[in-house]
């Protein structure tokens, strides 16, 4: 009996909508930030504290490999691609969780529960997070080229 009782939240019972998606994404992005995001932040701080060699190792693993002899810019290594994809994902998770968190703080005041309003702000959170992520990465990649 106890094993058959419904568990929270009931993903299978409801029709999906933006408000449900934004709620699930809040949990998923929060977990990603708390684990992957935190570990990269700690790795970065630890690498700075460890000295120049450890910082170079961090940068060469996550972002850009050391240039080969004679070359001014190195090609991206496989770990650079993985690092950048993870950082891109974490950028999106950051904005999604940030904007969704702001929405939750408003909901905590008792506002925004009307169906249309709730749906509208859930949609705005998701679009806003996508746009902010693209804007940040256009800026980062633009700076790298320019």
């Amino acid at each position: 009996m106890a094993g058959n009782r419904p568990i929270s939240p009931h993903l299978g019972s409801y029709k999906w909508g933006p408000h449900m998606a934004v709620s699930i994404l809040h949990r998923a992005t929060g977990s990603a930030l708390a684990i992957a995001g935190a570990l990269i932040l700690l790795w970065w701080l630890g690498a700075i504290a460890g000295g120049e060699a450890s910082y170079q190792a961090f940068i060469e693993t996550v972002w850009r490999a050391a240039p080969a002899n004679g070359a001014s810019v190195a090609a991206l290594s496989p770990t650079n691609w993985i690092g950048r994809i993870i950082l891109f994902g974490l950028t999106w998770a950051f904005f999604q969780h940030f904007f969704s968190g702001l929405r939750h703080l408003v909901l905590d005041t008792g506002a925004g529960y009307e169906l249309k309003t709730n749906r509208l702000w859930a949609t705005i959170v998701m679009i806003g997070a996508g746009l902010a992520t693209v804007a940040v990465w256009l800026f980062i990649l633009g700076r790298a080229i320019g």
Partner: peptide
């Protein structure tokens, strides 16, 4: 553990100066 590691790293950076280890 994570918070302690990060804070310790920052303190190490601050108290060992800008020249590095």
């Amino acid at each position: 553990g994570g918070a302690a590691f990060g804070i310790f790293a920052i303190l190490r950076i601050v108290f060992t100066g800008t020249t590095g280890a």
